[in-house]
């Protein structure tokens, strides 16, 4: 199952601030839905564990997250892939672009996600909605994290 999702957020912070947060492991960990751990393995790589919950389905994925195509402070690509044991595998990437706009920053993203194995075989009707929700949640969490009111 391969899906593409897009979206954008107007953030009340400077491009540099948004960029910094995009590169802050603590922020990323807090924003990735179900993320249990995100440990730095290199300048641009992390070992990650995340639990994905879709209705009655609950699967733990172990894998890695990497940052590439870094173009500070204009954007990058954040990619992740994980093995979920019997559930199969998941991988995805988001191309994130930052543009100064209206005194803040416009963040736009294009997410591509792919699911394989049992989840793809049996969860067809759930996957689109769930992937969209995970992507939406990540960027909503992130928008929250860069809003000045949040800690």
């Amino acid at each position: 199952m391969a899906m593409t999702m897009t979206g954008e957020y107007q953030l009340p912070a400077s491009q540099q601030t948004v960029w910094d947060k995009l590169n802050d492991p603590a922020v990323l960990k807090a924003c990735i839905p179900g993320c249990e751990s995100l440990d730095k393995t290199s300048d641009t790589g992390f070992a990650a564990v995340a639990t994905i919950k879709i209705g009655p389905v609950k699967a733990k994925f172990k894998g890695n997250v990497s940052l590439s195509d870094l173009d500070p402070p204009n954007g990058y690509k954040i990619s992740g892939q994980g093995e979920g044991g019997v559930a199969g595998f998941a991988k995805g990437g988001a191309t994130v672009k930052l543009v100064p706009k209206d005194g803040g920053t416009l963040l736009s993203y294009t997410v591509e996600a792919q699911i394989g194995g049992k989840l793809a075989q049996l969860g067809q009707r759930l996957i689109n909605g769930a992937s969209k929700k995970i992507a939406d949640d990540f960027f909503a969490n992130f928008a929250n994290a860069v809003s000045p009111r949040s800690p």
Binding site: G55, P56, V57, K58, A59, V86, A87, K118, L119, L122, G123
Partner: peptide
């Protein structure tokens, strides 16, 4: 923990090992 009411969504998911409460 998961509540078992009718079980007709939960048990099939558990059988497939897509959930393991």
């Amino acid at each position: 923990a998961k509540l078992l009411a009718g079980g007709h969504s939960l048990l099939p998911t558990m059988k497939l090992r897509l959930a393991g409460p």
